[in-house]
Simulated assay, not measured.
Amino acid sequence: MMDKRDAVPGNYTCEVTELTREGETIVELKYVVKTQLLFTTIESVEYTICNETLLIIPCLVTNVGAKSLKEMFVEWKFRNKHIFFYDGDKNKSRPEREFSSAYIVPDALLTGNASLMMDKSDAVPGNYTCEVTELTGEGKTTVELRYIADLWFSANDHTLIIIFSMLAVLLFWGSDITVILKYNSNITKEKIIIISVAGLVLSILVIVGAVFFIPGEYSTKRTSGLGLIVVSTVILILLQISMFMIAPAIGMLPINIILLIVQVLGLLISVVGLSLCVSECIPVHGSLLISGLGITALVALLGLVYIFVGSKQKTTQPTRVRLLCGRKWGLHMLLILMSLNRHA
């Protein structure tokens, strides 16, 4: 052994002698100039919950000179902690326990690709350092892995979904109060209680759904909340039918049937939009869902207007009947008196 400053390239002979044996060997000492490996500059990579299971942290060398994998050695570090290495001379690789899914593709090393791949579940945001060594070159590069919390629905779409669902509930209660006040004498208390309880269930479903459906990234909680909002539309349609049937001055007229058909159409559009949005991390069909909820709220508004108008017709019709009956009664009395005068 000697200090590197004293080393001189050339052949060194080692002679060993013992009592009965002797021998020698020659070793050549070479001075190799290490070249600096160059990397494609990639400062950071980003991933979201919508990314596929496999994440790739790039490490691309542009001037690899190795002709065999035995000349290659790769080491990955996370915040200066060793997490993975590959030794081409021994054809051996090993990830650390915290990054058990990490691996590289050895055959890609000779083309300069030493990118690290791992499951998204093992990924930790931070700085990852890739160190590559070959016989005549070495170098390293650092890539930052960033996690981006992406919104499932945009702020505008989220607001419209909440507004349409809440508006439909408020319009139902408007229709319910109108029917109870105008047709109280014709509706049994049991029907009033049933409709009110169903309306309360409708309101709870929409409120709970809105709480679960808070702005944020794709999750089971948010999909459940959106599902509650859409399912509540079924109760709304059933209540709409009930109120049309129990109002004596309205009933199930053709216009009411048309309104209900349009509302069912809105429900179907909402369900289709829901299924497409839930099955995709990015709701590209969100407009379909919003259109269905918008149609449902619009029909609920038209239903309230029609019930209100029908209630006014109910109050005017009895007055006309009483006037007609009064005129006929007076005419009969006049005829009776004329008949009695003739007999007299």
Rank of each mutant, 00 (worst) to 15 (best):
A108Q: 14
Y31L: 15
S275M: 12
G216T: 01
G266N: 05
S232W: 08
C130F: 13
T40R: 14
V8T: 09
K314S: 15
H158W: 09
V8L: 13
V284T: 12
N184R: 08
S175F: 11
S165V: 01
S100F: 10
G292L: 02
W76Q: 04
L301D: 06
W152C: 02
W152Y: 11
I83E: 03
L274H: 00
L334T: 04
A7F: 14
F39S: 12
C281Q: 12
L253M: 12
V201A: 15
Y147K: 15
L334I: 07
G326E: 15
P215A: 14
L298N: 01
F164E: 00
K70T: 14
L54V: 13
H343K: 10
H332G: 14
M338S: 13
Q317T: 11
K4L: 13
I56C: 12
T188R: 09
E52K: 12
I214R: 14
R79S: 14
V278C: 05
L253F: 03
L276T: 05
F172I: 05
E28L: 05
T188N: 11
P9L: 07
V299G: 01
L145P: 01
I26M: 13
A249C: 05
N156M: 10
E71W: 03
T136S: 11
A123N: 07
G199A: 06
V61W: 00
G227R: 03
V74E: 04
E134S: 10
S115H: 11
I195Q: 00
L331D: 14
L60G: 01
M1W: 07
P283N: 09
T233G: 14
R5P: 00
S100R: 09
S279V: 07
F213Y: 08
I57E: 06
V179Y: 02
P106Y: 04
I162V: 12
I214M: 09
G225S: 04
E96D: 12
N127M: 10
E131R: 09
I204C: 05
I49G: 12
V45S: 04
G294C: 06
N80K: 15
V74G: 04
V33G: 02
H158Q: 15
E217L: 00
E46S: 15
Y86L: 13
L151D: 15
L260Y: 05
T20I: 02
H82S: 07
T159I: 04
R222V: 04
T188Y: 07
S219N: 11
G225M: 03
I57S: 02
I104Q: 08
K90N: 12
V74Y: 05
I57F: 03
T178P: 01
S339M: 13
L274S: 01
S44G: 03
I49W: 04
N80W: 02
C281S: 07
L19W: 08
K221E: 12
K67N: 11
T220L: 12
G266H: 01
E75W: 03
I148F: 11
I195R: 03
I26K: 09
S311T: 08
L181A: 13
L324R: 11
H343M: 14
S232P: 02
K77P: 02
T62W: 06
S121Q: 08
A344L: 14
E134Q: 10
I307W: 00
N341E: 13
Q36M: 03
I162M: 10
I163N: 03
I192P: 00
S185K: 13
L145F: 06
V8S: 11
G23R: 03
T41R: 14
Y12L: 08
K312D: 06
